[in-house]
Amino acid sequence: MERIYKIQSQNLDVFYRDFQALHAINMDIEQNKVTALIGPSGCGKSTFLRSLNRLNELIAGTSIKGQVYLDQQPIYTKELDVVALRKKVGMVFQKPSVFPMSIYDNIAYGPRIHGIRQKHQIDNIVERSLRAANLWEEVNNRLNSPASRLSGGQQQRLVIARVLAVDPEVILMDEPASALDPISTSRLEELIAKLKNKYTIVIVTHNMQQAARVSDYTGFFLNGELIEFNQTDELFVNPRDKRTEDYITGRFG
């Protein structure tokens, strides 16, 4: 089967003022697969993730060289509609951050800002998204209660449902399990496995077991460089670079 690349980064450099956070990253991310980004804190994995939906731009003083392609189209151009990009490339953050509104309104937030007004249409999206995020059974009887009353694990799945509600093609996840207990984490990992049938997923994690469990591909970052990028089985069993080996065997990190 021919591989389809959803996202390709080409010689991507990212600078925060004078500091170079990423050095010439080249990575082809396959469609409908889970790609994990691992590496020690400050290695640039989150920076790379946030450059895939141009969220780095929010930080003053950020500049970029190189290019990222989504479906073969460059995203770092003046003409690109950032709103359309972020609609296609959704993001789940480290800390589940539900908006201070009801469960229903959290999910409806995205569809509403993208112009969907009809109540029955939004109702459908809310139900579909919550089902897709494995949360519907737990919350369908209290959609109008404040989202902040959900548990941490439920909030993280709510945030994922909120992302699904805008109908993305790619989902970026920035250490989505770091604030979750083990049971919530395993539910999240089940969810990721289910979602990759429909979406392309890129997940940053510093839990190597998690990367090994959920991903098809893994990229190892160190000091702003992509040291090694390979199929997950291959990278963990048979690392080619000494530094990768040192990291996955726990010699540093």
Partner: peptide
């Protein structure tokens, strides 16, 4: 919280939508 801004913008909201709704 800055997370609200990031989440809203990452959902494709404009700056004004984020300001107004969140």
């Amino acid at each position: 919280p800055v997370e609200y801004r990031e989440n809203s913008l990452a959902l494709g909201a404009s700056k004004w939508q984020t300001t107004q709704k969140v």
